[in-house]
């Protein structure tokens, strides 16, 4: 039987994990929102960013959080370059073209990482790796609080950026109707380039922060990408609030799964895929559509 402190621990775990999942998913949602393409290179960006953070840590003893910021800036530029060189050529093609292109980019990133960093598992240890905050019997790892806090900041920052800045408004306009946006004078190509760069930067930032929690190798990121995909479908593909709520649903389901009698931990990924199927069949617009309907009815 689980003591109240264990249940409290599960609640906290669910909340912190949701923050982590949301952070991983924002970049994917932004790119889909503006370009209507699934960025399969998202996992490759997270993995490469983890290695960039590792290299900065080894060479300059840079803290992973600062390393993640630098890596995000680097991948903002690389993302825009990738868009200009390749992605923009397939944006208006059938979806399979962009899927194949970005899948190819992911494979190239993996193989480049094997060549540069090898196949061994890498990890970063900081002075706060084992630091915890004690709330009674419940211990909260600082390395889990950081991605959670950053995720909240990112959600607030993205919401402000999209609502209060001209560029943000332009991104929203392009995501709602690219043709209409062009007709009112928005340079949709420029907006899409920046949005892809921003999406890549968010993925890279998430990848950099994941080094606080996980060991990684060039195969890193695949599982997270599948979870992110489930989350954005569940959340409604284009809504950051929906993505955050989707992350809460998945993280809660995973954390509390252990209370199911006879539960096998090896089935945990099944939860993400079951939620994906359920969302596609029962709630095609995701949680965002529920929120929208509720808003209209009020």
């Amino acid at each position: 039987m689980y003591e109240p402190s264990a249940i409290a621990g599960l609640v906290i775990t669910a909340v912190l994990t949701a923050g982590l999942y949301a952070l991983m998913s924002f970049g994917l949602a932004l790119v889909y929102g503006v370009m209507k393409i699934i960025n399969l290179a998202h996992a490759g960006t997270m993995m490469l960013s983890a290695f960039v953070v590792l290299s900065l840590n080894r060479a300059l003893h840079l803290d992973p959080i600062l390393g993640a910021v630098i890596s995000a800036a680097l991948f903002f530029g690389l993302g825009m370059l990738l868009y200009r060189v390749a992605v923009r050529r397939v944006v208006n093609a059938p979806p399979i073209a962009s899927l194949l292109l970005l899948f190819g980019v992911w494979l190239c990133a993996q193989n480049a990482a094997y060549l540069i960093w090898g196949s061994e598992d890498q990890s970063i240890v900081t002075v706060y790796t084992y630091s915890t905050i004690d709330l009674g019997d419940v211990k909260i790892a600082v390395t889990r609080l950081i991605p959670f806090g950053v995720s909240l900041l990112a959600l607030a920052g993205l919401s402000w950026f999209l609502r209060a800045t001209d560029l943000g408004k332009a991104i929203r306009a392009v995501s709602q109707n690219a043709m209409a946006a062009r007709l009112v004078g928005i340079r949709s190509e420029r907006v899409a380039t920046i949005a892809f760069g921003l999406g890549s930067a968010l993925s890279a930032f998430a990848g950099g922060l994941l080094t606080l929690l996980f060991s990684f190798n060039p195969d890193f990121g695949g599982t997270f990408q599948l979870k992110s995909f489930s989350i954005i479908v569940l959340g409604g593909l284009e809504s950051f609030t929906g993505v955050a709520l989707g992350a809460v649903v998945l993280a809660t389901a995973e954390s509390f799964s252990i209370l199911i009698p006879g539960w096998r931990g090896s089935l945990i990924n099944l939860l993400a895929f079951s939620l994906l199927v359920a969302a596609l069949v029962l709630l095609p617009g995701g949680i965002a559509s529920l929120l929208e309907r509720r808003g209209k009815s009020e």
């Binding site: 039987m1 689980y2 003591e3 264990a6 621990g9 599960l10 775990t13 994990t17 996980f214 195969d219 599982t223 997270f224 979870k227 995973e254 954390s255 509390f256 799964s257 252990i258 096998r264 931990g265 090896s266 945990i268 990924n269």
Partner: peptide, 20 residues
């Protein structure tokens, strides 16, 4: 007696079971 997936992303629920 509990299983987990290879290359798992989060073992906190499993470890909560172990603690309990």
């Amino acid at each position: 007696d509990q299983s987990f997936d290879l290359n798992g992303s989060d073992f906190t629920p499993l470890l909560t079971q172990i603690k309990a």
